[in-house]
């Protein structure tokens, strides 16, 4: 088995918040299948907070665990708080990722940030 710790294995075997949100307020996609990992995040926003977060991930065990952890960390946070989630803080919450997997699999935070940016740009466009 790959050198994954118990927390990573738990999030891989029992991923939280898998799926898509119908009529999401924002969608973010990061990575591409060529480098092996790709993930999409859907968010529902209420009163500037992430009311719901769902993800889908194509990739290895680490990529799935990362996405699951990001969704868990983000849920209920304000948008500004959620933008402070970083690959490092995700890896920290997962109690470590294998070194060689850190960069390629750890795209969840960026995908979430893109979903938030998507939401904000829609808000701007709608407000005009």
């Amino acid at each position: 088995m790959p050198a994954y710790n118990q927390t990573v294995m738990d999030h891989f075997m029992n991923p939280r918040n898998v799926g898509e949100i119908p009529n999401p307020d924002g969608v973010g996609e990061e990575g591409n299948p060529v480098c092996g990992d790709m993930m999409t995040f859907h968010i529902k926003v209420k009163d500037d907070r992430l009311e719901d977060v769902k993800f889908k991930t194509f990739g290895c065990g680490a990529a799935i665990a990362v996405s699951s952890m990001v969704s868990e960390m983000a849920k209920g946070k304000t948008l500004d708080e959620a933008l402070k989630i970083t690959p490092e803080s995700v890896a920290g919450k997962l109690e470590g990722l294998p070194k060689n997997k850190f960069h390629c699999s750890n795209l969840g935070a960026q995908a979430l940030h893109k979903a938030i940016e998507d939401y904000r740009s829609k808000q701007k466009a709608g407000g005009k």
């Binding site: 889908k56 194509f58 799935i64």
Partner: peptide, 8 residues
């Protein structure tokens, strides 16, 4: 596949 954005 249920988890995969490519499959979706």
């Amino acid at each position: 596949r249920q988890m995969s954005p490519l499959y979706a």
